[in-house]
């Protein structure tokens, strides 16, 4: 029922992207996401699309896993597209009753969709190729300068690691409770909005109870193993940059430069 959500799930295989230092992947993903918002013209989407395609090939993760990650956000996407098409003012292309569809609106909707899809696929790719542990280690390492400002970086990254780790567990739990309530005649599908929200109660209450129980157990288990926070804590596998990682940083830089140049060229082109 709920097994389709891939966001935050790791795909086990051996590829260049999998072996890369997670810090590179985080920086790369950020650079990629920012690059999508730098300009709004077709050239940069082409460049970013090529880059994304190359990354997907390098990752050796089947493409359908990324498409699966899109499924849960399709509703949000549809709403934004409709809003953009209907409510953007500009040169009208098509008019019917009170609805006017404008050239700008269509363009906006198209760009929004491309951006959104590429953004989701790009970030899904990062979580598919990086284990949650690596991801949070990398974040901790990248954010460590903030330690000087008394930001509890280790604690934040630990919280993230736990949150990520719990996504699949809670998914499974939801599935289980849902089935248990269905077996007691619960109905999650029919009825109006109000009824449906009310029908979620038998699902949400046990889910929260179990989340708290699990959190409690985990805290206990961590304390039993003398967890005392980040201070003086060493790592079994510290992150160390290798030559491949340096080359990867260079690739990201080249990508950004190409994209920015492409963006300026694209501005001069029509569309």
């Amino acid at each position: 029922m709920l097994r389709d959500i891939t966001l935050g799930q790791y795909y086990q295989t051996d590829s260049l992207l999998h072996r890369l230092d997670p810090r590179v992947k985080i920086v790369g993903t950020f650079a990629y996401i920012i690059s999508l918002f730098l300009f709004r013209n077709i050239t940069i989407y082409l460049i970013a699309g090529l880059w994304l395609f190359a990354m997907i090939r390098l990752s050796k993760v089947p493409f359908r896993f990324m498409v699966k990650g899109l499924k849960p956000v399709i509703m949000i996407l549809l709403v934004t597209v409709i809003c953009n098409v209907l409510f953007t003012k500009g040169t009208p292309v098509f008019s019917f009753w009170k609805i006017t569809i404008t050239d700008e609106g269509l363009k906006m909707a198209l760009f929004m969709t491309i951006r959104f899809v590429m953004l989701i696929i790009g970030s899904t790719l990062m979580t598919l190729t990086t284990t949650p542990n690596q991801l949070t280690d990398a974040l901790e390492s990248l954010l460590s300068p903030l330690n000087k400002l008394h930001v509890p970086v280790h604690e934040i990254s630990m919280m993230m690691a736990i949150a990520l780790r719990f996504i699949p567990i809670l998914m499974e739990e939801t599935d289980k409770i849902m089935k248990a309530q269905l077996a007691r005649g619960a109905d999650f599908e029919s009825g109006n909005m109000f009824k449906r929200v009310k029908a979620m109660l038998p699902l949400l209450v046990p889910l929260f109870v179990s989340a708290f129980r699990r959190a409690n157990d985990l805290a206990m288990a961590m304390e039993a193993r003398c967890y005392r926070g980040g201070e003086g804590r060493t790592k079994m596998k510290p992150l160390i940059y290798k030559n491949t990682d340096r080359r990867a940083y260079l690739c990201i830089l080249v990508y950004l430069v190409v994209l920015i140049v492409g963006g300026f060229i694209g501005k001069r082109l029509p569309l």
């Binding site: 248990a180 309530q181 005649g185």
Partner: peptide, 30 residues
């Protein structure tokens, strides 16, 4: 589902109502 009752593993995890009686009423009310 009312004729074939299914009790899952650790069924106590499905309890949600404010009191015992109401929780047991959930099935028949459905």
């Amino acid at each position: 589902r009312s004729k074939v009752g299914l009790v899952f593993q650790y069924p106590e995890h499905q309890l949600f109502e404010t009191d015992v009686f109401r929780d047991v009423c959930f099935g028949p009310k459905n």
